[in-house]
């Protein structure tokens, strides 16, 4: 438990010190909100949610890339793989919640006639999905630049796809969009249920995949035999 918390804490400390990156990441959801603000509140909420997803997954990507060389040696000092990826994920979720709160308050202050509970759930889905999603991309792609470009593609696709389209359900952040529709347009509760379920399933799937990737990457190799000292 202590190992998990320590990794989470160090992840948060590292990210909190990357102030420049953090500010730029926060700028995106805010700009999205401001640009769409005058036209249609639903658009700006959706843009805001995508912005949060983008910010958290990019932070996750950076954190994972930065720890690429560090993790194998931490493994040698007694960490199990799950300490490392779960600890990092916990830290990222914490960060995601922290940046979501001001944006949530922004919607409360700046927009009327919304189901605010729905906005909160949608943000939770964004954060829950974005952390393992960014970590997965960071683990699979060797460099930050490539990872960032891939994330950008996913976010852009998410924005352009029609959510009613069958294929749209395969995109990772579909849940937040569905729930946002419920919160903004006061549609029936099916939207909320479908969205929440989607968010849950995608999060679990991503966590399992991240676990698999890290377990392989940090596995004990077969050629190496450990013998305790008598």
């Amino acid at each position: 438990m202590n190992r998990l918390v320590t990794v989470a804490e160090m992840t948060l400390r590292e990210l909190a010190r990357r102030r420049g990156v953090l500010l730029l990441l926060l700028l995106m959801p805010l700009t999205f909100w401001l640009i769409r603000r005058d036209s249609y509140v639903g658009q700006s909420v959706r843009a805001l949610l995508l912005g949060i997803s983008w910010a958290v997954s990019t932070a996750a990507l950076f954190a994972t890339s930065a720890a690429r060389e560090l993790e194998p040696r931490l493994r040698l000092t007694g960490y199990r793989p799950h300490h490392l990826y779960l600890g990092r994920m916990l830290g990222l979720w914490g960060l995601g919640l922290a940046i979501s709160v001001p944006f949530f308050l922004l919607t409360v202050v700046d927009a009327n006639n919304l189901r605010y509970g729905g906005i909160a759930v949608a943000m939770l889905c964004c954060v829950a999905v974005a952390a393992p999603f960014g970590m997965l991309i960071g683990a699979l792609l060797p460099r930050e630049l490539e990872g960032t470009l891939l994330l950008l593609t996913v976010v852009a696709m998410q924005m352009l796809l029609d959510p009613a389209d069958a294929g749209a359900k395969l995109t990772p952040f579909w849940s937040s969009r569905e729930i946002a529709t419920w919160a903004v347009d006061h549609t029936d509760d099916g939207y909320l249920t479908r969205g929440s379920l989607h968010g849950l399933v995608v999060t679990v799937l991503l966590i399992v995949t991240v676990a698999g990737v890290f377990a392989v990457r940090l596995r004990r190799r077969r050629h190496l035999h450990h013998v305790p000292i008598a």
């Binding site: 400390r13 990210l15 060389e69 560090l70 040696r73 040698l76 035999h225 305790p228």
Partner: peptide, 17 residues
């Protein structure tokens, strides 16, 4: 390997921040 193993990579084994 008998006992605990320590490894010091050539570079990148530290956390920048």
């Amino acid at each position: 390997v008998s006992g605990r193993l320590g490894y010091c990579p050539q570079q990148g084994g530290t956390a920048d921040f």
